[in-house]
Design a protein around this nucleic acid. Structure first.
Lengths: 238, 238
DNA sequence: TCAATGTTTTCTGTATACATAAATTGGAAT
DNA sequence: ATTCCAATTTATGTATACAGAAAACATTGA
């Protein structure tokens, strides 16, 4: 118990309610999985994790259960938990799925969005105009996309898409900062908004599919190179 | 602890690994939520549930965490868990979402399915031919749909759709047994398979959307009448 | 040497005990 | 009577203890 503070090195801050270890552990473990510290296939031993974070098994278990329920880790019969494989292929599939969800949101938005929702969408888009700072654009971009989801009018879809956005976020965070991307992203948003306002559901869906897949593909390329590196690393160590 | 066996009345069987309470509890609580025994808004007190099921809080918590992670229940700041509202609207939205997922699977399947996957799909479809028993058709129908998901070729999509199928299952189970429905369902499957084999992605998507939404709408009607009943019931009691 | 069985250890699931924060209730003072 | 503060209770999160099953290991017999 002397090492209780170990956790704070892995967790951004204690910004949440102070006593909510499982929450912090969830994010900490998720972070470590995404950054590759716990690589795909790695065993997540409850007691090891508990010791590593200086806590008991209970909050660790809660975090693992939640990670398991989003398929980020898997429980094997008698082998405990293991990090689910996050191959380039799987990440592509994930982004493809995300693209389809966003396309669906766009399609619904084009057909059913209320004036208020459209107004919010437009405002979120305008807020992105002229922004050059990647971090700031990243933030505003997310807000724009959330506004899009909400314009779909299907709460269930919104929920699922937000969840997927959350799951994809740690990966997107690793993305390269290509300055030119901001401009093209904004231009794509412009088109998307226009097609939605024009009630062109199919085109909105298609534009969004492409918009999201561009991210996904660029990211998959990045991962692939990282993969090569770490494979080389493994070979070197062996 | 004298009432440890209470659980077995709510759970179908101990078919799973014998010592896996949290698993059984998950299904038992889910069942009670779906059947309205724990109506939307109802508070789920950990100790109450623990006593009701004759177990300790630990497995109850695990079940609640998992139910929470699929938004079936919600955790309010200092109020504990409560059953998430499952209004007719929400159920419609859920089925609409499910319909879109299946449509997506069909669309992908039409474009990319391997001969092997198509063969499996066809076999699953043929297995449904001539079946009249609703329970048996229900079972084979699920297998057919799973074969469809798998034909999409996107593991991530398959995973998500299976999860949604699982979530929708308890509601579908409540559905009325309309004998004529089996025949029309089979006919729809026939068309769906045909369009997929013809690589007609858009039509396959459209057919599937309709196929799933029919269930959803019929079910929503059912719920709505149940809703009226229980509302009347509440009024009567008040 | 290999197989088979028995023993030990490890691991996972469950129960219980404990601590802390919030809510509620009661009392006192204005 | 009302308000504010204190105290007790309640609930939630965490730690620890315990139990049973499975796996690994060793020992013994062929």
């Amino acid at each position: 118990m002397k090492d209780s503070e170990i956790i704070f090195s892995s967790v951004d801050a204690m910004d949440q309610s102070p006593h909510r270890l499982s929450e912090q552990l969830l994010e900490a473990i998720e972070e470590r999985i995404v950054t590759g510290e716990y690589p795909p296939g790695a065993r997540l031993d409850e007691v090891e994790l508990a010791e590593a974070f200086g806590v008991s098994r209970t909050p660790i278990r809660e975090a693992l259960i939640r990670l398991g329920s989003i398929h980020m880790i898997e429980k094997m019969p008698r082998k405990g938990w293991a990090v689910a494989p996050a191959s380039p292929r799987r990440l592509c599939e994930m982004f493809e799925f995300m693209a389809e969800l966003e396309a669906l949101c766009g399609s619904f938005a084009a057909r059913r969005a209320t004036p208020f929702q459209l107004q919010k969408l437009l405002a979120a888009h305008e807020a992105c105009r002229g922004v050059n700072d990647p971090d700031e654009y990243y933030r505003l971009n997310e807000i724009f996309h959330v506004a899009l989801y909400q314009a779909s009018g299907n709460e269930f879809l919104i929920e699922q898409t937000l969840e997927m956005q959350r799951r994809a976020r740690p990966y997107r965070r690793l993305q390269l900062r290509v300055p030119a991307r901001i401009a093209s992203s904004f231009a794509e948003h412009e088109q998307i908004v226009a097609t939605i306002l024009a009630n062109n559901a199919d085109l909105a869906a298609e534009k969004l599919r492409q918009h999201v897949m561009v991210q996904g593909e660029r990211f998959a390329n990045l991962i692939q190179s990282v993969e090569k590196l770490s494979t080389a690393d493994v070979k070197r160590r062996a």
